[in-house]
Design a protein around this nucleic acid. Structure first.
Length: 612
DNA sequence: TTAGGGTTAG
């Protein structure tokens, strides 16, 4: 039915002129340059040799034609697609020839007509690997030249985009997506979803939104998964309002949010929701229940982790109980989130209790559990216990990973035992675990902490040699060290270096600089940093306010500090222990009683503000 | 083909 457009059956004249090849292998072929497959016997001989992969017997039969010409003949004589595929692959390997894009496309068309889709995918993979600069327009126009089966053509283009996405060739995938519409190819929801998913993984939100909008405009088929992927991408980028718009879009399209949609949104709020984020996350849980979308283990795990990371263990445990009441069994991830929360809060004993509880319930702690507990010990400066747990799990045969080593190295760094820390770094490779940027960050931070700037610089050079790229944390460590060395102005210059390297300064970066200026007795300069931070789209967090309030207090500017305290509360930011210490030590002990909402500060204000 | 846990910096 659907044949290759330009491939015609050979003319009788052409067939007769090659008739000498009806015989077996000619030892001394005449001057003709091509063998002939017009003889049915010869064709079946070739077919069976290719089918059983008797390449050594086939090779002399191809002479004196070259493999490219032989391939053309296979097309002309309408050999089945799998025979042509086998020949193409073998001949590329055996003769080191690269067949043309046209040949590939002719084969794709044959394979598509035979519905041999996985074969097309693996062949596309090879094509893109060997010649990764296949232009999409060449591909598309060649395809249209050889086939008018728009359905098969669209499937081939669809698979091209999938192959690009699977091989990390995101720009090619995007370009193909854009051009596919111009050429009239209809893309499937599968390839679009795959591409959207890869854009999410790459953190390319602008492209994600572009594809999403184009899909709406071009009326490409949408499904629930499409919406969920887009919502996830927007949530991961902190664009929660935009994610909410997409939820509205899906309702317009008659698609109802499911448990994955809600879990994605809840996770978005937990991780990037700003002030009041946990309230919003909890509201979403209530909303899903009202709309008869049943929360699952992931919903609760996400919320528990969110509360724990928000320093609200009480709420984390409340959700944990609620989960059990709903008849859901907490899993390893549930326990890990809680254990990590307790360890972060310095409550290692409770964390160990939870570990015992999970074992009692038949759950096996994994490397994540152990890393969290090791970190709990390390935070409490319990180096001995950190090391013992490490030795213990190694002995148990648990596969330790780079995070385990980094945690152990960090424990030694915090204890000032830099030689041991370096020795551990050197033994990592014995376990086939290799230092990464975080390993270096721990060590560099350790050397700065121990006043050894030379070694810190040496490690920074070593990173360069090993092509381990500095990340935001590396810069934060350097900036913090400079600020503590009264070199804040010099540290500010590193902001430009960061942007040159495509790194976005974080809250920690700006807060370190503000703290530096405050220590140097220059809160005005700190406020300049705050403006720069806000210009970059980062609103101050609790640490920012703590730094500024403390800096102003130290300069005797208590009224101004009080204004910042109120501003922080108005923004819904919850004061932490350090805020209260500042209020006590820097304000009240100096005879200044801060006023909140116009009322004088007292302890009941604390409990009201303390926790959501 | 979509959603959840562990390290380093304030």
């Amino acid at each position: 039915m659907h044949r290759l457009r330009r491939l015609r059956a050979p003319t009788p004249h052409a067939a007769s002129s090659f008739s000498y090849h009806l015989h077996t292998v000619p030892t001394h072929p005449p001057t003709l340059t091509s063998p002939c497959l017009s003889d049915p016997n010869f064709r079946s001989q070739v077919s069976s040799l290719i089918t059983i992969q008797q390449w050594s017997k086939l090779e002399p039969l191809i002479q004196p034609a070259n493999p490219t010409q032989f391939l053309q003949q296979l097309f002309e004589f309408n050999f089945p697609s799998d025979i042509i595929l086998a020949f193409l692959q073998w001949s590329q390997h055996a003769f080191k020839v690269t067949h043309s894009l046209e040949d590939y496309i002719k084969l794709f068309i044959l394979l598509a007509n035979d519905k041999r889709y996985p074969k097309i995918r693996s062949l596309l993979h090879k094509l893109l690997k060997q010649a990764n600069i296949v232009s999409n327009s060449a591909f598309f126009s060649t395809l249209l030249n050889f086939s008018d089966n728009s359905c098969a053509n669209s499937i081939i283009v669809d698979m091209l985009i999938m192959t690009y996405a699977n091989n990390g060739m995101y720009n090619n995938a995007l370009e193909a997506f854009k051009r596919a519409g111009d050429y009239g190819f209809k893309l499937s929801v599968y390839s679009c979803n795959l591409m959207l998913g890869s854009l999410v993984k790459e953190g390319r939100v602008a492209s994600l939104e572009f594809v999403y909008k184009m899909m709406i405009r071009r009326r490409i088929e949408f499904n629930l998964i499409t919406f969920n992927i887009v919502i996830n991408g927007l949530c991961k980028a902190g664009r929660l309002n935009r994610a909410g718009d997409v939820v509205e879009d899906m309702k317009v399209h008659g698609v109802m949010p499911n448990v994955v949609t809600y879990n994605t949104l809840i996770d978005g709020y937990c991780k990037r929701g700003g002030p009041g984020k946990m309230y919003k996350a909890d509201t979403l849980l209530k909303e899903m229940v009202e709309r008869r979308v049943c929360p699952n283990e992931i919903t609760y795990n996400t919320l528990i982790d969110g509360f724990c990371k928000d320093d609200n263990l009480v709420a984390g445990v409340r959700v944990f109980k609620e989960m059990k009441q709903q008849g859901l069994r907490p899993g390893v991830i549930t326990y890990n989130s809680l254990i990590n929360g307790f360890c972060d809060d310095g409550k290692v004993d409770e964390a160990l209790g939870l570990r015992d509880e999970m074992v009692d319930f038949g759950l096996e702690p994994n490397i994540v559990t152990y890393n969290a507990i090791m970190n709990g010990f390390s935070k409490k400066r319990m180096l001995k216990e950190t090391r013992e747990l490490f030795d213990d799990i190694v002995e148990k045969g648990v596969a330790v990973n780079v995070l385990t080593f980094n945690t152990l190295i960090d424990a030694y760094c915090k204890a000032g035992k830099m030689e041991e820390a370096m020795a551990i770094r050197d033994m990592m490779s014995e376990r086939m675990v290799f230092p990464n940027v975080s390993t270096y960050n721990c060590l560099i931070g350790g050397y700065y902490l121990n006043g050894n700037k030379e070694m810190a610089n040496k490690l920074l050079d070593e990173m360069g040699e090993k092509i381990i790229k500095a990340d935001v944390v590396t810069y934060n460590i350097r900036i913090d060290a400079m600020c503590k060395n009264a070199e804040t102005r010099k540290a500010v210059r590193l902001l430009d270096e960061m942007s040159e390297k495509g790194l976005t300064p974080s809250h920690v970066t700006y807060n370190a600089l503000m703290a530096g200026y405050c220590r140097e007795g220059n809160p005005n300069a700190a406020l300049t940093v705050r403006r720069r931070m806000e210009k970059e789209g980062k609103s101050p967090n609790v640490v920012t306010y703590n730094v500024l309030i403390k800096g102003l207090c130290e300069k005797g500017k208590l009224e101004e500090a009080n204004r910042f305290l109120n501003e922080m509360l108005e923004k819904g930011l919850i004061p932490n222990r350090i805020t209260y210490d500042i209020i006590k030590e820097e304000m009240m002990e100096k005879g200044f009683v801060p006023s909140i909402d116009g009322h004088l500060y007292n302890d009941s204000k604390i409990s009201k503000l303390e926790k959501y």
